[in-house]
Design a protein around this nucleic acid. Structure first.
Length: 516
DNA sequence: GCCGTTTTCGGCCCGACTGTTTTCAGTCG
């Protein structure tokens, strides 16, 4: 799998082009960054795509044109890209590490390299400690101090945190801000709202008539380890859980447009803004403007899409993967709503002693250890779990040698742990699913580990299989443990009618019976 | 370097914040 290597090289090429600093190369850099993002979120191996479909197949990937396709082919054939090697000679800078330091971008790094020969974090730290950085154009005493702090922070803060950790924290912050009394509306935005499996930072959006007071409350709240920036429209803090949190404050009139804007993704927004321009309008976080008139002022987020002649696009689909085109044709997939899941297809609860079950009317409980086990269905009656007699077979794919057992088994099979094998083997799982397609196979989503990833499920969605969502938790709840699994299916464009636990208990029992 | 409901040329999202600047460039999301 060469995707991540190529994505990294393209990202570096973009930084190198920006460091070189010519006006025109800024746009070229953006093109490389966009191609890099597209490639790193792809599950299919570029090399395989090229082997099967040649250069045309590469050109069909959005963001990849003739120039970049040639670079990919060059890498496949020779293991390197000449343009990258040439640029790297000019600026032998470790951009990937240095860019993680807040406040440093390609331009400043180029200046630091030319003035002081700095190529990595250690050299930067030494230069700061010897006060060599102050005095360089664009740097002063303040930036030296700030950079030193940010180096430490970059080393401390982990890359991205999982959604199951970010979401409760985001909810806590939302509730806290609401409790201050200074906010009219508070909502979670950004990748947390899009239910991305990993979160780079938490974005919160508020409407307020007292922005200064609300910002004060925000930066001094529990869980903040340091303040990165503070203004009356935008502030950023570093959180103890190992990520940062942005609070943006807008007026009530702008809230709908702002929700759209701050939910992202970046590529989705760029395409949406271009569409607005094409229709003679302008879209930003304050509204959708026709001339000077804000035509969605005070309206909910849905109005932005409606005004652009699009069906409403749920946050989980906003990744510029064709959702805008589909919305224009009113052909978006009908994905499941969070409240529409009726049961838990893989629960770890103790059925002899049930505690809290909210919004769940049945559970399937594991009966043993082996790679192929029976899950038994229970419903609830007056605080008691009742065994129904229905069951389903589940195969642990991390024990793939058990495929032979699969052949001898009959009836409906659920596959789980399907991506615990690492990347080369994921091709094996794909083959397996392709082969079992149309035979009533079910892919089970692990809502606790948030896997398989939505990208993987998205790439498999063309095959004929059903999907089930399991909490893998001892406390199944629609709002809590089940939520992230539901999010995966939404991000993966899986239609609601493919998810078997949207059926109520009776319907599911007859489904299982008819499939035996 | 990519891309096309105006287009195969000429555009390319856009505003907030910071620090070092006397009016702005760089960074960030």
């Amino acid at each position: 799998m060469i995707n991540q290597d190529i994505a990294r090289i393209f990202t570096e090429i973009a930084y190198l082009l920006e460091a070189a600093g010519e006006q025109k190369s800024q746009f070229e850099a953006n093109a490389y960054l966009k191609a890099s993002r597209a490639i790193s979120s792809m599950q299919e191996d570029l090399e395989t795509i090229y082997e099967k479909g040649g250069k045309d197949a590469l050109l069909s990937i959005p963001g990849i044109g003739k120039g970049i396709a040639d670079k990919i082919v060059e890498y496949i054939n020779s293991g390197s890209i000449q343009k990258y090697e040439d640029l790297k000679k000019k600026y032998p800078i470790d951009f990937i590490s240095l860019m993680k330091i807040e406040g440093l971008g390609p331009k400043k790094l180029a200046v630091l390299y030319q003035a002081l020969g700095i190529t990595n974090v250690e050299e930067l730290r030494n230069a700061i400690l010897n006060h060599k950085v102050r005095g360089i154009p664009g740097f002063g005493e303040k930036s030296e101090n700030q950079l030193l702090k940010n180096i430490e922070m970059a080393e401390r803060v982990s890359e991205r945190i999982p959604i199951w950790k970010a979401y409760p924290e985001a909810l806590r912050i939302k509730n806290y801000l609401e409790s201050t009394g200074y906010a009219l509306i508070v909502e979670i935005a950004g990748s947390t709202r899009r239910m991305k499996e990993t979160i780079g930072d938490i974005d919160i959006l508020a409407a307020s008539e007292y922005p200064n007071a609300l910002m004060d409350k925000f930066v001094e709240m529990d869980g903040v380890s340091s303040i990165i920036a503070k203004g009356d429209k935008k502030s950023t803090v570093s959180l103890k859980i190992g990520t940062t949190c942005d609070l943006r404050i807008v007026s009530k009139e702008s809230f709908g447009a702002a929700m759209q804007y701050f939910t992202g993704s970046k590529d989705h927004n760029i395409k949406l803004r271009r569409l607005a321009i094409g229709k003679g309008m302008k879209l930003n976080e304050y509204g959708l403007f026709s001339g000077d008139k804000n035509i969605v002022s005070g309206m909910p987020e849905e109005k932005v899409y409606e005004t652009l002649d699009l069906a409403y696009i749920p946050p989980e689909l906003r990744e510029d993967r064709g959702e805008i085109e589909a919305a224009a044709q009113k052909r978006l997939p009908e994905i499941v709503q969070y409240g529409e899941v009726k049961g838990d297809m893989f629960s770890k609860m103790d059925v002899s002693n049930i505690k809290n079950i909210t919004g769940i009317s049945y559970v399937f409980v594991d009966s043993g250890d082996g790679p192929l086990t029976d899950l038994y269905m229970y419903t609830f009656d007056g605080g008691r779990a009742v065994k129904t007699g229905a069951s389903i077979k589940a195969l642990d794919c991390s024990k793939l040698n058990a495929v032979s057992e699969l052949k001898s088994a009959s009836g409906v099979i659920m596959l789980y742990n399907i991506d615990s094998l690492g990347l080369p083997e994921s091709a094996a799982v794909q083959n397996l699913i392709e082969k079992l397609s149309k035979s009533g196979i079910i892919v089970l989503i692990n809502s606790s580990d948030v896997r398989p990833t939505s990208d993987f499920l998205y790439s498999l969605r063309k095959y004929d299989f059903k999907v089930a969502i399991g909490s893998f938790s001892d406390e199944p709840s629609l709002e809590g443990s089940m939520r992230f699994g539901i999010g995966i299916t939404r991000r993966a464009w899986i239609e609601k009618n493919r998810i078997i636990n949207t059926l109520d208990a009776n319907a599911l029992m007859s489904y299982l019976k008819n499939s035996q």
